[in-house]
Amino acid sequence: MLVAHTLGTRPAVIAKYKRKVRLAEGITPEGVLQPEAMQRGLDCLAMFARMLQQHGVPATNVAVVATAALRSINNADEFQQRALPVLGHPIEVICGMREAELIYQGMVATTQGAGRRLVIDIGGASTEFIVGDGETLLFKTSLPFGSVTYNQAFFTSAPLQQLDFDDVRASVSEALATHQQTLLDLGWHGVVGASGAVQSVVEVLQHRGSSEIITLEVLGQLKLEILAETSLALPGIRGLSRERAPTFAAGVAILLALFELLHIQQLSLSGGALREGVLLMLAQRVAMQDRP
């Protein structure tokens, strides 16, 4: 959750709130969100509702969006109906393509750089790929894999093995196959990561006093450290927080696969993504409402 003041049509963030919910962990093979995961989501929204009240945000100035987890479940209507009285605002479930657009807009608004860029956002249940040049968006797609879903599919028993990483690469390759050549043909001057998976790696590098630029060498070293662990909690990886640990291996595996399949040389962390894109959209909408 972001709270901001609008200066013209540009939002200036004054407060941030975040809680790990991992809805995708609670989705059954039949596509139903289990009660425990649903309650985690509702509890988080109740906290957000208190913050909205505390900051005195007018109802017309609130946007609430949901992404892959609610897109994919069969009981999304139930979640939305239960959430409405808790939060006091309806939830808009956006499609993957709209999510990609907002991610790119949030990146451009918050991240220095010029030239054509590839933006990768590895979420819990989906991953977005966007290529743009300045404000111009050239390519966007959303694919149904993420760090939470791959963690459940491939990283369930310790010690983790090379085969787990191989399986992730094969799955990413299959999911990316339709778009891989298009992405390579478009090309880019730089690659930006806008996701928890990238944030997790950068936090580890920061803790170690290393460069925050992610390379294939960095990911390869982290994979070796993961394979040396005997617990899924990965307690021996220096700089990895307990909160980030559950999906760290899956995130590293996805990044490794993408580096190899898309011939990525290096990747840096974006200054913002979906949340910032939604905030920019909302600020522009509020500015339009305020016009005489």
Rank of each mutant, 00 (worst) to 15 (best):
C95K: 15
A283R: 10
F154E: 06
G26A: 06
L7D: 11
T247R: 05
L269C: 12
L102G: 02
E36D: 11
L261F: 12
K16Q: 12
V62M: 07
A177Y: 07
Q54A: 12
G26D: 01
S126G: 04
A46Q: 15
P58R: 13
E92H: 12
T230A: 14
R50V: 02
L222K: 06
V86P: 07
G88D: 02
G132K: 00
M97R: 00
I27H: 06
L279S: 03
G251Y: 09
L102D: 03
T28W: 06
S195G: 01
A153W: 00
G134W: 09
M107Q: 07
H5C: 14
L219K: 02
A76F: 06
I91A: 09
V204D: 04
A46T: 09
I103T: 04
P144M: 09
Q161C: 04
G193S: 10
G271M: 02
V168M: 05
C44N: 08
G134R: 14
R19D: 09
E25R: 05
H179I: 05
M288L: 14
R285C: 11
H89K: 05
M281N: 09
P11C: 03
T127A: 09
K16H: 08
V278C: 02
H55A: 14
A153R: 14
E78H: 12
E135M: 13
Q180Y: 07
G124V: 02
E217N: 13
F248M: 04
R242T: 13
G220N: 00
P90K: 12
H179C: 12
F145D: 01
E25K: 11
Y17M: 14
S231T: 09
L2P: 09
E276Y: 00
V86W: 07
T149P: 08
D133P: 04
